[in-house]
């Protein structure tokens, strides 16, 4: 196995003085499905945002595939977001004016992928997440579980190295949650995509290859 990412002593202090991350160090192998367990406010979202290039650390080092990420270089961060990561959110965050397939295609527009190509890739992924019958539905016509499946397909559409999931089952009932977790496990196994899943749900975390626990911005053994 090769190292996908490593964090060393990552700090993030907000302007109001809150230390969201207080020296976090984590390593992740390629193809691993890691869950990060912590209460709300423990810093797990901040960790995901930094890994996804949406936030920047105030100290420490973040490396992907052995190379340090330079958070000051906007172009590098944009390319990092486009090429390496896919996001899944608690609120699903689908665009309400677009159908399921258009939502899945959307990230590819910023990557300059031609329309026909986008369409076929999105269709394959929607089939894989079990929504082949609902590709022309709008988000409001889909259940929570279905919306999250669309979001998973969207996270995968740009062939990322890692999917960063922030409380992916936080808005779903337990039966649906189980289905979503199974889907992520299945995709991880079949496609070899790494998953980094932030959750406060111990049952969900238990299905990961490895569990990291975070509290008050520090990793707990």
């Amino acid at each position: 196995m090769t190292t996908l990412l490593s964090l060393e002593g990552v700090m993030r202090v907000y302007q109001n003085g809150v230390k969201a991350l207080d020296g976090v160090s984590v390593n992740m192998e390629r193809g691993e499905l890691v869950s990060i367990l912590g209460k709300s406010g423990s810093g797990k979202s901040t960790l995901l945002h930094i890994l996804g290039g949406l936030d920047r650390p105030d100290g420490g080092m973040v490396s992907f595939e052995g190379r340090e990420l330079n958070f000051r270089n906007r172009d590098e961060i944009i390319m990092h977001r486009r090429k390496r990561v896919g996001f899944i959110f608690q609120q699903f965050n689908l665009l309400p004016s677009m159908t399921a397939i258009e939502n899945v295609e959307y990230p590819l527009i910023f990557r300059g992928v031609p329309r026909s190509d986008r369409h076929s890739r999105a269709r394959v992924l929607l089939e894989q997440v079990g929504l082949s019958g609902r590709i022309e539905h709008y988000p409001k016509e889909l259940s929570g579980g279905e919306q999250q499946r669309v979001a998973i397909a969207r996270a995968l559409v740009s062939d990322p190295l890692i999917v960063l999931a922030d409380e992916p089952t936080g808005n779903l009932d337990s039966a649906t949650s189980a289905g979503i977790v199974s889907l992520m496990r299945e995709i991880n196994r079949e496609r070899g995509v790494s998953f980094f899943i932030a959750t406060h749900d111990r049952d969900l975390a238990a299905r990961a290859d490895r569990i990291c626990t975070i509290a008050d911005g520090r990793m707990v053994a």
Partner: peptide, 16 residues
């Protein structure tokens, strides 16, 4: 605002 934020998370640059 929300849609713009989502677009950025999904890879939209400032120029986009």
């Amino acid at each position: 605002t929300r849609e713009i934020g989502i677009s950025m998370a999904l890879g939209a640059a400032e120029g986009d």
